[in-house]
Design a protein around this nucleic acid. Sequence first.
DNA 1: CTGCATCCTCTAGCGACTAGACGATCAAGC
DNA 2: GCTTGATCGTCTAGTCGCTAGAGGATGCAG
Lengths: 146, 146
Amino acid sequence: MLSIGNLAKSTGVKVPTIRFYEQIGLLPAPDRTDSDRRVYDQVAVRRLAFIRHARELGFALDAIRTLLGLADHPERDCAEANALALEQLATVDAKIAQLQALRGELKQMVDGGCQGAAAECRVIETLADHGRCAAPHAAPARHALA
Amino acid sequence: MLSIGNLAKSTGVKVPTIRFYEQIGLLPAPDRTDSDRRVYDQVAVRRLAFIRHARELGFALDAIRTLLGLADHPERDCAEANALALEQLATVDAKIAQLQALRGELKQMVDGGCQGAAAECRVIETLADHGRCAAPHAAPARHALA
DNA sequence: CTGCATCCTCTAGCGACTAGACGATCAAGC
DNA sequence: GCTTGATCGTCTAGTCGCTAGAGGATGCAG
């Protein structure tokens, strides 16, 4: 039996995040002590570890909800889990490709060098004039970059 | 002289996004017609193209604000622009490395195959048991994935 | 018994938009 | 001149996955 703080420690998920997961229904509301504190068992630890691992792999919370549903009902068909994983793989692949294209242009920009006044700054020039780009690049997907 | 819709068409930036950029001070408030419609000139087109290009390269709006400031004052030192570009390159590199590690584990998971019941689903098993991971992986940076 | 860590709930904020409601205005066709 | 539909205006609220902070109650160690 663990307090929320100890659950946090043993899973590496922060306390407010655990409460947030409970709020959105990813984690079931746990039992409480007389003084209203949450008390967790080992089942909760496993469930939260599952969530954390899936998040590390980049699954969206909605996808995780589905995966948890499947994990909870082992008699169901796992085709959906497979589909989600494949989709996630495709997303990651696309993002890597995107970022590599980006990296190429950034590198070129930085390598152009730039000393002294901004008037002759290669970085600023490059940004101002998309026509100079070696290759066309689309906008990265939303949230693909910090 | 362009309406906001035509500015949007000629830069590829959506109308609400243009208004948003004006609201946060990235674009100056343009002149208006008698009926309060925004009117843009070629300077606005160039400025918005600059912003769009920088966004495509993954620069944050705050960084873009700085870059625009430098572009507006060509007599200033461009060291800051260079630093921002280098920082951005490092960020992209880190993200690529992160995603490739992720991809590896996802691939392994998907290749494990998975037919029939969720009870024997390799995807779900893998998620449930982090200990099986070939390599350790940290959580991706916030917003690194959709 | 006195601190201080931890817990509780609640609201608001982040980045970079996007969506929708609601009303005014414009341009084109009849 | 009139109608119709696209475009424009403002405003608020929603997205995602948390994170931060206020303000108060409880638990535990010295």
